[in-house]
Amino acid sequence: MADTMQLSKDEIVAASLRKMQTELSAARMPLREAVAETCRILFAFGHDSGLAGQITARAEAPGTYYTQRLGLGFDEITADNLLVVNEDLEVLDGSGMPNPANRFHSWLYRARPDLNCIVHSHPPHASALAMLEVPLEISHMDACVLYGQTAFLEKWPGIPVGNEEGEIISAALGDKKAILLSHHGLLVAGASVEEACVLGVMFERAARLQLLAMAAGEIKPIPPELGREAQRWTSTQKRFEATFAYYSRRARRESLLDPATVG
């Protein structure tokens, strides 16, 4: 006789979340390796745009963070060629220079001590929405990890290399974890590298779904209580870790199949 068929949905959800804490497992990478792997994952999911975009994560010393070296694409980043910089973008470890646009990351880390990793990229579908000055809409179950977490910067402040842009973007993000920057791209941030990576991949997928839906008709909103329920369901650290591990396996398989990577 089944023991769970009479349980309420809330009871089943709570029991499943508890089970995920012990049964859903994925080996976590060291921080430096996870940042580099995030770059490669985002490349595999179409986030590359030449030298544009930055992935950063708080490093071990206060006021410092990891980032990639300017001049390398997302697909070329390794743990060995990452830089450690301070808030003034002075290189403390590694060779080369960081992207000057990293300055707004320093502002975000100051404003949000709960955030430990920032992903900023210019993938095509999010960039297309940015060109339209249209906010991201979360209206599909798959994208609900971002439900209630998206902000919108309607006016483009220009290239984000000054302190003004740092103040503007950090204020626009507020207490959210994701933002669409008009005429620019996406930014997501998480408490962990795994979370930020997953949010970045899902942001671009949500933008693609939105453009497809807009071409067909009017997007219908989902009930707020169900959106919040789905956001809580998909937003556990264990789930982020498992999803990140899958993205990593997928990116590595695809790189092996790409003729450009074969010697």
Rank of each mutant, 00 (worst) to 15 (best):
residue 214 M to H: 13
residue 172 A to C: 11
residue 97 M to T: 09
residue 200 G to M: 08
residue 232 R to T: 15
residue 254 E to P: 02
residue 64 T to G: 08
residue 53 G to V: 09
residue 83 L to N: 08
residue 174 G to S: 07
residue 259 P to E: 13
residue 133 E to F: 00
residue 4 T to I: 15
residue 181 L to G: 13
residue 60 E to K: 06
residue 12 I to T: 08
residue 78 T to P: 01
residue 198 V to Q: 10
residue 145 V to H: 05
residue 191 A to L: 04
residue 64 T to C: 13
residue 94 G to E: 13
residue 31 L to C: 07
residue 50 G to S: 07
residue 142 D to P: 00
residue 37 E to Y: 02
residue 83 L to W: 00
residue 101 A to F: 03
residue 8 S to G: 10
residue 166 G to L: 07
residue 77 I to G: 08
residue 29 M to S: 04
residue 114 D to L: 08
residue 187 L to C: 07
residue 190 G to A: 11
residue 241 E to F: 00
residue 246 Y to V: 03
residue 94 G to F: 04
residue 101 A to D: 15
residue 134 V to N: 06
residue 137 E to C: 11
residue 19 K to G: 00
residue 90 E to L: 15
residue 229 E to K: 09
residue 214 M to V: 07
residue 146 L to S: 10
residue 189 A to Y: 01
residue 232 R to P: 01
residue 186 L to F: 05
residue 29 M to V: 00
residue 211 L to N: 08
residue 110 R to T: 14
residue 108 L to P: 05
residue 70 L to M: 13
residue 248 S to A: 15
residue 152 F to W: 05
residue 240 F to M: 11
residue 202 M to A: 14
residue 210 Q to P: 05
residue 136 L to I: 08
residue 262 V to P: 00
residue 150 T to V: 15
residue 189 A to N: 03
residue 66 Y to S: 05
